[in-house]
Amino acid sequence: MNLVQLFIEPFAQFGFMNRALVGAIILSVSAGPVGVFLMLRRMSLTGDAMAHAILPGAAAGFLVSGLAILPMTLGGFAAGLVVALLAGLVSRFTIQREDTSLAAFYLISLALGVMLVSLKGSNVDLMHVLFGTVLALNDDALVMIGAIATVSLVGLAVIWRPLFAECLDPTFLRSVSKAGHPVHLIFLALVVLNLVGGFQALGTLLAVGLMMLPAAASRFWVRGLEGMCALAVGFGVVSSYFGLLISYYLGVASGPSIILVAGGIYVVSLFFGRRGVIFTRVQAPRHRVA
């Protein structure tokens, strides 16, 4: 077996590998920039909280029609939106900050979701919802992921400038425009959208990995916002490809493989990135004349 075969064969030969790769790549393109904004807004853990929050919706969809994509996706999206909206409202109208209200609502949501799954399904079903099966993506799921990615990318492009302003100087945005709050909610909706897009493939919990790990790694390399988004997408795509390859040859679970490759990229970036640990340490303390 030559090298080309080694790297291409699994995807050429097996439809399920092919579809898994396409799905994961589309998700990477869509989730990467969203992850970058989450990171820059110091909301890196919000993605995780939202991933838990979409569980009862997905579970309700699962109760109604089994492991079908559309009901679970719609249910998950609705549940995530409700939690994001409630958390936002609490922080807006009371003294409680959004991190606290979000924690409260996602925990309620999570408990509700686990209870719903336990009403009908077995533990195997719960595992499926939590950790997904990228190798079982069918054409319907791919269309769904594609649609979600399109909406997400267009949405992000539309709110890019107000979101940029809201991150950089929220007081200023409040003084010139009423857009701050709606933009924040739209952004949270995009987060939820990407998570429900990802949970079919990776499950509710690991979907966050493809969103946050590439974003976190990209910050060790570049300074500009656009550069970070592009690099995060690149890291996501690379993780998807090598993750699936590893999963194929070693016969291990595909979702965790993808996320672990992304995790590996993060650790390597942490040490060897241009703005990482080693480079900033060994850089000679020299300076320019002016």
Partner: peptide
């Protein structure tokens, strides 16, 4: 006290 996020890549 400007609420500007000085760490934001701008």
């Amino acid at each position: 006290i400007a609420e500007i996020d000085r760490t934001f890549p701008a």
